[in-house]
Amino acid sequence: MVQTGSPRTSGIGRVLVVVYAILALAATGRSVFQILTKFDTAPIAYVLSAVAAVVYVVATIALVARGPRWYAIAWATIGFELFGVLVVGTLSVVDPVLFPADTVWSFFGRGYLFIPLFLPVLGLLWLYQRRPSKREQIEEGVAGSRR
């Protein structure tokens, strides 16, 4: 069950959640439109945009949800996002023919004002500063074993 109202959703955390939610909506809309209307022109690019959309949706949920498990999911999705931006961004610069159409992560997120490049770095730094205490990890482990 997703519980909201965690300390991760206050201050800068709230800004991160809002930006992730906006990117989730934008990437989802873009990828659905691309896949439905012109999939045959650049299937890899459009599937990568859909992958980015899923990553942004899961990251948004994980940033809002409480507990060490959701913290780990946030860390994994945002880490995957950074990896994706760096790999797709590098490939799109080195060999632009690989991506005949832009993805969310092409050219390091150029189409999104490079937010996809900087956001995961900020997100990971912010998560690191708010990592769960040993007590929270133990409590979740005990609660998880009772299910």
Rank of each mutant, 00 (worst) to 15 (best):
V2P: 07
Q3C: 04
T4V: 15
G5Y: 07
P7W: 10
T9S: 13
R14W: 13
V18N: 06
V19K: 00
Y20W: 14
L23T: 10
A26Q: 06
R30A: 11
F33R: 06
Q34V: 12
L36S: 14
K38M: 14
I44R: 09
A45K: 00
L48M: 12
A53T: 05
A53E: 02
V54E: 05
V54N: 00
Y56I: 10
V58G: 07
L63Y: 13
V64K: 05
G67V: 10
P68D: 12
P68Q: 05
P68H: 11
R69E: 02
R69L: 11
Y71R: 00
Y71K: 01
I73E: 01
L82R: 05
F83P: 03
G89D: 10
G89Y: 08
T90C: 03
L91F: 14
V93T: 12
V94F: 03
V97C: 03
V97I: 13
L98D: 06
P100S: 13
P100M: 11
A101G: 08
S106F: 02
G111C: 06
G111Q: 07
F114W: 14
F118G: 14
L122A: 15
L125V: 14
L127Q: 03
L127H: 02
Y128L: 11
K134M: 09
E136H: 04
E136D: 15
E139A: 13
S145D: 13
S145G: 06
R147F: 01
